[in-house]
Amino acid sequence: MTNSVLVAVDGSDGGARALQYATERAKLGGAKLIVTYVIEWSPYSFNTPEENAERHKRREEEIDRATSGVVEPAAAQLAAAGIEYETVVRHGPPAETLIKLAEKFGVQQIVIGRRGQSGIKNLLFGSVAGNLVQTSPVPVVVVP
């Protein structure tokens, strides 16, 4: 098994810190980074007919935005630092999708940033980090 780490980015400061942390680790240990952007999406939501008709178009736009806005700059940064990497942009429920990808790539670790959202929001929606820590098959590093 190769030495690899999955790092989640989402364009936020937390994501940037996670990438920063993972980059430093990779430099030290020579690990390969799997840079992942999960676009929050559920197959079980309710849509209007119009939203459905435009879904394919929206999906492409979302992927484009994530790729060119966040993933590609991150990749450029890694390339400049001489770190081996792969990129993935994927729709799905965040924690579950990260775990699936971690299994698929056989990574040793998942690195994510903390969003630091308020208590009530956590109560209602749960936190990605919290869910991930509870269910991940590999160690999770939550970068504050």
Partner: peptide
């Protein structure tokens, strides 16, 4: 239920969503 949904290409309108929309109508 999504048993046959390809996990490598999520993000399109799911069968569930299409059914829910049509049933709402």
């Amino acid at each position: 239920r999504g048993d046959y949904a390809d996990p490598d290409s999520p993000g399109e309108v799911s069968h569930f969503q299409a059914l829910a929309t049509a049933v709402s109508g």
